[in-house]
Amino acid sequence: MSQYASSVQDPPKSIGLAPTFEAIQVVRSPAPQSKLKAILLAIVVVCFNAVGNLSLAWGMKHISDVGVNPIGYVHAMLNPFVACGIVLLVLWLLTRMALMSWADLSFVLPLMAIGYIVAAILGRFVLHEQVGLPQWFGTFLIFGGSVLVGTTHHRSGE
């Protein structure tokens, strides 16, 4: 364990992707990210997803029927809202992958549920949908659960 810790202090300059066990250990050890950073990135990931979906849905709603032919899809992508939505969802995928490299899956998942809260708030105040008492209680539970999970250590085995 001690020589493992010392490799954290002195990460090698260039990292190959050689698939040996030793190489994997070396690649894994440099610069583990702090929990606060992981939580902040989780919020960024959730926002990319929520705003990306909203933009995509908004754009699709204002396009005449796309149909099943590929030309319809290409035409749809020329819509600025659709294009913006696609870019945001690609960013969502990449930042989510980075987050997975920082923290446990069982730590990330409950935090991702904050997305439901964002969706409820966007639904209420942007799309003017009805959000009832059970729904607000649900968002409260999700928030409480996420805070509880946020107090646990974000990375097993360190």
Partner: peptide, 24 residues
Amino acid sequence: NETVGKRRTAGALLVLGGVVLLSR
């Protein structure tokens, strides 16, 4: 092989309850 202790389980269950309630 992640460490899923009592607190993380409790948090996950709260979130689960919230997700179910939210979509009623």
